[in-house]
Lab assay of single mutants.
Amino acid sequence: RELEAFAERFKQRRIKLGVTQADVGSALANLKIPGVGSLSQSTICRFESLTLSHNNMIALKPILQAWLEEAEGAQREKMNKP
């Protein structure tokens, strides 16, 4: 249940930020998480549509959570600048 809720929230917030699935995939490489490079657009799509295996969903959740927090933080900074 929690994974499904996160996937839905992730998709809504990604769209609100105006970021494509492909952008998310390539931006993950910038997070410098050990062992994590970029991901394909189709992987992000399959995460959002819950068609990845349960284990893959569990593995990707903290990575996508980290990206989302960073992206939303950058958005807030941009909006707070005069």
Rank of each mutant, 00 (worst) to 15 (best):
residue 47 F to G: 00
residue 54 H to A: 13
residue 19 V to Q: 15
residue 18 G to F: 01
residue 47 F to Q: 00
residue 9 R to N: 13
residue 66 A to N: 11
residue 4 E to Y: 06
residue 42 S to K: 15
residue 45 C to D: 06
residue 18 G to P: 00
residue 37 G to N: 14
residue 65 Q to A: 10
residue 69 E to L: 10
residue 3 L to D: 03
residue 37 G to R: 07
residue 36 V to E: 07
residue 81 K to H: 03
residue 49 S to F: 01
residue 52 L to Y: 01
residue 74 A to E: 13
residue 44 I to F: 01
residue 56 N to Y: 15
residue 6 F to D: 02
residue 29 A to T: 06
residue 78 K to M: 15
residue 56 N to I: 09
residue 12 Q to C: 02
residue 16 K to S: 13
residue 78 K to S: 08
residue 2 E to I: 04
residue 46 R to M: 15
residue 64 L to K: 01
residue 10 F to D: 01
residue 14 R to H: 00
residue 12 Q to K: 10
residue 18 G to L: 01
residue 4 E to A: 08
residue 6 F to I: 03
residue 23 D to E: 13
residue 65 Q to G: 08
residue 65 Q to Y: 08
residue 59 A to V: 13
residue 71 A to H: 06
residue 22 A to I: 05
residue 31 L to H: 11
residue 59 A to G: 07
residue 33 I to Q: 04
residue 19 V to M: 15
residue 72 E to S: 04
residue 51 T to P: 00
residue 25 G to N: 07
residue 23 D to H: 06
residue 30 N to T: 09
residue 76 R to W: 09
residue 13 R to W: 03
residue 48 E to A: 00
residue 73 G to H: 08
residue 52 L to T: 02
residue 69 E to V: 08
residue 59 A to I: 11
residue 81 K to W: 13
residue 45 C to M: 13
residue 13 R to Q: 09
residue 6 F to H: 02
residue 75 Q to D: 09
residue 63 I to F: 13
residue 16 K to V: 06
residue 23 D to P: 00
residue 71 A to F: 04
residue 8 E to S: 13
residue 68 L to N: 15
residue 42 S to G: 10
residue 1 R to I: 14
residue 26 S to V: 09
residue 16 K to L: 08
residue 28 L to N: 02
residue 28 L to D: 01
residue 76 R to E: 13
residue 3 L to C: 00
residue 17 L to S: 02
residue 64 L to E: 01
residue 45 C to A: 14
residue 51 T to R: 11
residue 67 W to N: 01
residue 11 K to T: 11
residue 64 L to T: 01
residue 65 Q to S: 11
residue 31 L to V: 12
residue 76 R to H: 12
residue 49 S to D: 13
residue 49 S to H: 09
residue 4 E to Q: 10
residue 1 R to D: 12
residue 9 R to G: 11
residue 55 N to Q: 12
residue 66 A to C: 09
residue 4 E to I: 15
residue 42 S to I: 10
residue 28 L to R: 02
residue 6 F to Y: 07
residue 64 L to P: 01
residue 62 P to L: 02
residue 60 L to E: 02
residue 68 L to C: 04
residue 60 L to T: 02
residue 18 G to K: 06
residue 12 Q to A: 12
residue 79 M to G: 13
residue 23 D to I: 02
residue 71 A to M: 12
residue 48 E to L: 00
residue 74 A to F: 10
residue 3 L to K: 02
residue 63 I to N: 05
residue 35 G to W: 03
residue 5 A to E: 13
residue 61 K to R: 09
residue 70 E to Y: 06
residue 59 A to R: 09
residue 40 S to K: 08
residue 63 I to Y: 12
residue 62 P to Y: 02
residue 73 G to Q: 14
residue 54 H to R: 14
residue 66 A to E: 13
residue 41 Q to S: 13
residue 37 G to T: 08
residue 79 M to K: 14
residue 10 F to K: 00
residue 75 Q to L: 12
residue 79 M to R: 10
residue 33 I to G: 04
residue 45 C to E: 14
residue 80 N to C: 15
residue 5 A to V: 09
residue 26 S to Y: 15
residue 45 C to H: 15
residue 7 A to G: 02
residue 40 S to F: 04
residue 24 V to N: 02
residue 1 R to C: 09
residue 49 S to I: 02
residue 63 I to G: 04
residue 72 E to W: 03
residue 50 L to H: 14
residue 17 L to R: 01
residue 77 E to F: 06
residue 64 L to A: 02
residue 24 V to T: 02
residue 70 E to N: 12
residue 50 L to R: 13
residue 18 G to M: 01
residue 19 V to C: 07
residue 37 G to S: 09
residue 81 K to A: 15
residue 45 C to V: 14
residue 73 G to E: 15
residue 38 S to P: 07
residue 59 A to T: 11
residue 49 S to R: 08
residue 56 N to V: 15
residue 20 T to W: 00
residue 30 N to Q: 13
residue 9 R to V: 09
residue 31 L to W: 09
residue 39 L to H: 07
residue 60 L to H: 03
